[in-house]
């Protein structure tokens, strides 16, 4: 390395020791926030696609019915079949209902004596906009006890929550980037103050502002890349642990949370982005500060 490239001894000051670790923490936190956004997208998407395309018609058991007449299941199925939004409607048999109830009520032997409702599982066409209220009225005209359950209604709160979590994560990312920029400005100003005599000497030797700024910029790029790579390594280790933990879970409840190719690209671009933001911030800070010097 030439003497001029080492004109300002930046490798020896506090920014070289602290800034990489601060940036590593920032990159790590941003990676986690991105992961939480991804997770929320996947989970809410899975809930949405799994449940919003289904409704259930509950028919109470005869002993609990308010109606004297037996429920005309065929008429209800006919009403459902006439709806263009309905892809299929199927009366579940006892075995299906037992299987559905098992996680909550135990084995069929235990539920044998319980009066369980009969269920019609209705699958809607994707993106169909069914007027559930109107359908409910039509079905209740056939059987006053029939209850139409729209799963999407119960899901809306959860999807809203997921949306808020995404929004908060995006806010956290913005705050982290802002903090990183402010810290880079602060550390650069400290560096300028610490090296003021050397910078003055370089100016007196004929160095232009860009000569000084170049030295800070090269240093920032190196430090930013180093910090970014440390943060990336930490986040990869964390994701490996999360994948290990979630690999044993039922994917119908928790979707596969691994990254897609574009998401990996974003993750691996984080160190470059950290170095880029740090370098730009440092360059602008140095140029602005130098322009105020005599």
């Amino acid at each position: 390395m030439t003497a001029a490239r080492r004109g300002i001894p930046l490798d020896w000051d506090i920014s070289s020791r602290i800034l990489p670790w601060l940036l590593a923490i920032m990159v790590y936190l941003i990676a986690l926030a991105l992961f939480s956004v991804l997770s929320m997208n996947r989970i809410s998407g899975q809930w949405d696609s799994a449940l919003s395309a289904h409704i259930t018609v509950q028919l109470p058991p005869a002993e609990l019915s308010l109606d004297d007449q037996p429920v005309d299941v065929e008429a209800i199925l006919e009403v459902l079949g006439q709806k263009p939004e309905v892809a299929s409607a199927e009366l579940l048999d006892k075995a299906d209902i037992d299987r559905l109830m098992e996680p909550w009520l135990g084995t069929p032997e235990a539920t044998f004596s319980l009066p369980l409702p009969r269920l019609i599982a209705v699958t809607l066409h994707p993106a169909a906009q069914l007027d559930v209220h109107r359908l409910s009225q039509e079905i209740r005209n056939i059987s006053i006890d029939a209850l139409v359950v729209d799963h999407k209604k119960g899901l809306e709160g959860l999807i809203d929550l997921a949306g808020w979590i995404r929004l908060i994560s995006a806010g956290v990312i913005i705050l982290i980037v802002t903090s990183a920029v402010l810290m880079a400005v602060l550390i650069t100003k400290m560096g300028l103050a610490a090296h003021a005599p050397v910078i003055e000497l370089l100016h007196l030797m004929g160095a232009e502002d860009r000569y000084v700024a170049d030295q800070f910029q090269r240093h920032a790029l190196r430090v930013g890349l180093m910090g970014g790579l440390i943060g990336l390594a930490l986040s990869l280790a964390t994701f490996a642990i999360i994948e290990q933990i979630t690999s044993g879970l039922d994917h119908s409840l928790v979707p596969n949370l691994s990254f897609s190719a574009p998401q990996w690209a974003v993750l691996f671009a984080l160190p470059l982005a950290a170095a880029g933001v740090t370098t730009l911030t440092v360059r602008l800070t140095v140029q602005r500060s130098l322009s105020r010097m005599p």
Binding site: A3, A4, M205, G206
Partner: peptide, 13 residues
């Protein structure tokens, strides 16, 4: 910087 590098610095600038 070494003695030589100190002298070289303004040349490089």
């Amino acid at each position: 910087l070494s003695t030589l590098e100190n002298v070289l610095l303004c040349q490089e600038i």
